[in-house]
Design a protein around this nucleic acid. Structure first.
Lengths: 240, 240
DNA sequence: TCGGATCCACACCTGGATCCCG
DNA sequence: CGGGATCCAGGTGTGGATCCGA
């Protein structure tokens, strides 16, 4: 390490302060659009792994850092002041969403009230900054480009579809059918395992109130849903 | 690291398997009695710190390791098969207990039922292996001797005293007098802070059911109590 | 003296997601 | 292809206790 003065060194990796306005956020988004992950990581003094196999969340963490997210693993949006949630959107060689999108864990209190209006899923998805990123594994990680992000708010139809899926899934949970609850349920929103490995168990209760242990699970958006969002956003970009 | 075969190297630090009988445990206790912490740490391939200021739990962890405790921060006794809890007892230059003894945290469910019979404190203290250890700070850590441990079960009088203190303290908590609950309460069992620092806060509820945040606290045995236990054990040792 | 403050290790949990086999 | 399995970083909680100032 070089000698440091009492001043903050301009060469130290510093996390930007959170954007205070939506305009400030979109400016930052424009600034990363068209850059490679290698460039962005270099500028942010982030070490870049060879691939994502053992660093699955690396891209998301890098962009959270660069854009100035401030909600350190807390139960609120990534940009807490703006109520905006950041989601990277990995694209395959055809420019289509490659993976499902994790939303949040299936907590016993997915909603304390049991109502969609109060659910974590709705809160998380009410205001999302989607950031498309090349994710074809043929491309070395450092050479993958970041696309232009856009902010999405569900329209009435989209929210109705998500709500329908959520209510179906929550009902299965309420009925205690948690072991029968596979990823096959839900048209656009599904429930899948979410854990370090399949031997991890969390506390829960069955329909008789008996304490049982289950694999932790999470809500995910299917790629069929994010593909629609991406198409709609792409069309808008070509309008006058 | 030296080359390793497929066999377990006899020189690797290995935690002994838990003792399966009380006799096996007392044999192990005899084997550490009269040794210094330096000897024990060396034999167990434990690095020894200069002092305990920044390693307050080191002695306890060392002896848990050497004696084969198996309850890795779980809600059960250290020797789960035997139902025995290990407590080191630090002695001052006069051979008297120097510090209070931590028992367990004051959980919202210190007892789910609110009854002494079901409390964590009673469970933890029902069967304790006390291990006296020199703790005069004039003596370098490595040179401090371990004494002869003994197993204690509360007699009727001792349990009555602990129960009385516990019920008094739990009542103050139930009344929501948590902020007024200082370490002054309780003749032998007291409640004191238990956290990384005084800014750490945990979730709790006040008497109106309002959610509040408090300093985490723990139950401790006063030295006046452990001094009595030590005296009684010492006298027994001199009887025929 | 002792009540209040503090320290380390390590397990566990959460949020970031992608991997990979049938 | 997609459902089930898995991986890392970092924060929080728990268990081991002793420190230290008024």
């Amino acid at each position: 390490m070089p000698v440091m003065s009492n001043d903050i060194s301009p060469h130290m990796p510093t996390r930007p302060s959170p954007p205070e306005t939506l305009q400030e956020l979109t400016t930052r988004v424009s600034n990363v659009a068209g850059k490679t992950l290698g460039q962005i990581a270099h500028d942010a003094h982030f070490a870049i792994p060879d691939d994502l196999r053992r660093h699955k969340g690396w891209v998301g963490s890098l962009l959270e850092h660069v854009l100035g997210c401030d909600a350190g693993s807390q139960a609120r949006q990534d940009f807490s002041a703006l109520g905006v949630e950041l989601k990277t959107l990995p694209l395959d060689a055809q420019g289509q969403p490659k993976e499902s999108t994790f939303v949040c864990t299936v907590n016993a209190a997915g909603s304390a009230s049991g109502r969609w209006q109060d659910s974590w899923v709705r809160k998380k998805l009410s205001n999302v900054l989607w950031l498309p990123i090349e994710a074809d594994n043929q491309i070395p990680l450092a050479e993958r480009f970041v696309g232009m992000g856009w902010i999405w708010r569900p329209n009435a139809q989209q929210e109705a579809m998500l709500r329908q899926d959520w209510e179906e899934l929550m009902e299965l949970i309420a009925l205690g059918e948690q072991n029968a609850l596979t990823a096959n349920y839900g048209q656009y929103l599904q429930i899948r395992p979410k854990a370090a490995n399949s031997r991890v168990m969390s506390k829960a209760s069955d329909s008789d109130g008996e304490s049982i242990r289950l694999n932790p699970r999470g809500f995910y958006l299917r790629t069929s849903f994010t593909r629609q969002l991406l198409e709609a956003a792409t069309i808008l970009a070509f309008e006058p």
